[in-house]
């Protein structure tokens, strides 16, 4: 092997992590994983644990598929990827149930739904199948973080304006205090019920895309009229 060894964090590899955070964000640019961004963003703690779980599955899935990329028969590659992802998700679910029971309870069905998260299949198919293990791990980390970033940002606003709290801690006062409303609620402030529902995520993600594209004009699709 005369090929010079690439440093672990070369410029190219760094880009694998930084790109998905902004320029190639899986949610806002690749438009993958929108569905769970709508569903698990009502509370910040759920969004954070969900991001970690997706990150884990994505990194492990990318690694395994990348290691096996020369072995997988192309006829059944989607099925093979599906089996790998499903197995990983079941492992995550079982381990959560055994060791961090409370977290697994608060996520309930969403852990199982990681299987259907399009980011994972998308990255396995688009990246891990054609790249080396280390690069695939970095790609998994990058995309997992990019996904988590959007999830946490959306959840921040949804929880703040929907429930008046952050990570479960009330910040605007207690609307249902024993002695009547306290804090901002005493002054007539009301939580926005729409913020708790999936449509508000779409609005927030759209606003995010707007800001993102305003800041980086190169992202704007030239063919769009």
């Amino acid at each position: 092997m005369s090929e010079t060894k690439e440093p672990l964090f070369s410029k190219k590899n760094k880009k694998l992590i930084s790109d998905p955070l902004n320029l190639n964000n899986p949610v806002t640019i690749q438009v993958l994983g929108i569905c769970s961004a709508l569903a698990v963003t009502v509370q910040m703690d759920n969004a954070i644990v969900m991001s970690i779980a997706v990150l884990f599955v994505l990194v492990m899935g990318n690694l395994i598929v990348s290691l096996m990329r020369n072995l997988i028969p192309s006829k059944i590659k989607i099925i093979v990827q599906l089996v790998i992802v499903a197995a990983l998700v079941i492992i995550v679910d079982q381990v959560l149930k055994a060791y961090v029971y409370d977290v697994s309870k608060s996520l309930s069905v969403f852990v199982g739904l990681i299987i259907t998260n399009c980011i994972i299949m998308g990255r396995l198919e688009a990246f891990a199948l054609g790249n080396k293990p280390w690069a695939s791990i970095l790609d998994g980390v990058g995309n997992g973080l990019g996904y988590g970033l959007i999830l946490v940002i959306v959840a921040f606003f949804k929880e703040l304006f929907g429930s008046g709290s952050l990570l479960g801690i009330p910040v605007f006062g207690d609307p249902e205090g024993i002695d009547g409303p306290t804090g901002l609620f005493a002054m007539g402030y009301e939580n926005n019920g729409l913020m708790l529902l999936p449509p508000s995520s779409l609005i927030l993600v759209a606003l995010y895309i707007w800001i993102q594209k305003k800041k980086t004009p190169s992202l704007i699709d030239e063919n769009a009229s």
């Binding site: 072995l71 997988i72 028969p73 059944i76 099925i79 093979v80 089996v83 790998i84 197995a87 079941i90 492992i91 079982q94 381990v95 149930k97 055994a98 060791y99 029971y101």
Partner: peptide, 25 residues
Amino acid sequence: IFAIVMVVVVGGLLAFIASSLKPLQ
């Protein structure tokens, strides 16, 4: 052959994990 081996390996792994974590759960 690939499919069979994969199913056996993954199935065995999951069965092992599930049964060893069961008492804790």
